[in-house]
Design a protein around this nucleic acid. Sequence first.
DNA 1: GAACTCTTGTAAACACCGTTCACTGAAACC
DNA 2: GGTTTCAGTGAACGGTGTTTACAAGAGTTC
Lengths: 239, 239
Amino acid sequence: MTEATRRERLRAETEREIRQAARALLVESGRDAVTLRAIARKLGITAPALYRYYDSHDALLRQLCDDICADMAAALYADLAADTSGQVGCQVRAVCHAFRRWALAHPQEFALVFASPRDPLGADQFGSVFLQLAGRLIASNLVANHADDDVPEVLHEDLARFQQVLMDAVSVHGVVVEDSVLNLGKIYHVVQSWVRLYGHVALEVFGRFPFAVSNPEPMFDSMLDQMLTDIGFQDTQVS
Amino acid sequence: MTEATRRERLRAETEREIRQAARALLVESGRDAVTLRAIARKLGITAPALYRYYDSHDALLRQLCDDICADMAAALYADLAADTSGQVGCQVRAVCHAFRRWALAHPQEFALVFASPRDPLGADQFGSVFLQLAGRLIASNLVANHADDDVPEVLHEDLARFQQVLMDAVSVHGVVVEDSVLNLGKIYHVVQSWVRLYGHVALEVFGRFPFAVSNPEPMFDSMLDQMLTDIGFQDTQVS
DNA sequence: GAACTCTTGTAAACACCGTTCACTGAAACC
DNA sequence: GGTTTCAGTGAACGGTGTTTACAAGAGTTC
């Protein structure tokens, strides 16, 4: 079964521990606490040894970002799977709620991944959940048709590229969609929904609403309702 | 005129230089480059001397945040003043565009102020521009009436508090508004607009749109149009 | 003007950081 | 068994925030 040599197994194990330690430090004490020496201390080794696994502190942080994205995606998928209604509308709600819940539970991770002026992170990393679900939602044809005329011409090229990404994401799961179903108007509204979802969650995580919100959840629900209405979603049908 | 002693003047001057140096470092090389020793080096003094002005590195960063907020507010006001149309709709557009422009031109500052899991920053700091303009917009009665029934009951208390903040912000400038004009439905929509504005700008600054946007400005304009329409604003009249 | 205090700066030190380099010892390979 | 590969060490360099003791000038008081 295990074709890996003893050395390879040890190396993999150590690398796993490094990631785990880095993650724990981030969660416990914030980004600035993710230090090579602190990580090494947790493993009972010395800092230079980490250079056998990562080229630099920065590379390790990038790996950390990827791990976070993967974990978040897993969490979202789990919450999506927990929804047994079979209704796409409920699924969208479930994933949006899961995203908010994850962000509030992991503010440091959220800040690192979603609010750092860094290199654009691999699209397939964090986006896959949203992409797939957004694609599925659109393909379900439960969303009201939005004419392509509504979206400015300048955006057509970008949106068309995103359209391709969406279709690929959906087709990976065996669903084939036609261009006409996944038209630019719909895609534009998906992007607008992402703006609102991200905006609300980020404002909440960073406490940047213009006033103290004592009970943010109903506000989020209310925003979600409005968002789904605006996107033209009819949540009476079953996918 | 100057009641300050010579020593007080010198101290104020040094403090000004400290802030200026810190700001320059942030802009040039990011948050991590804002170092006590680097600041001191710029002033030609030693790092411990800075402790005569700030209790810690963290306190200095907080001061930096305040400075940034003040500068941003000034920039927004300037762009607001540059709009001579006299139409509230144009003013709102001008301020939103100014916010986006400022954020894109100052990504490091934006990240520090708007996307750090820190203490909630003084509301009067950054919000004043938006508050005042939002209040002015609402008070102008150009916004369609939104029934209070639309907003969930749980939010009423928070929104009522924000209502008071808004009315105070407006009344500072001599404008008196009645509760009925500034009803909760309208206020709720103002908050929703902030969610979208912030969401779009932050996503753009951090490059977190789900696809590469080659020309983001028309997308922003499009979002702004939709936002103003949703808020029920009629942009034909003059305030 | 002398004596005194208050303020602003320095230099040295401490513990921590990322990173490099020469080196060790054990595992893996032939 | 000899050789190579490689994870890990220890020392070092220059950087960081922060504390401490100390110097020197400005302002005040007698």
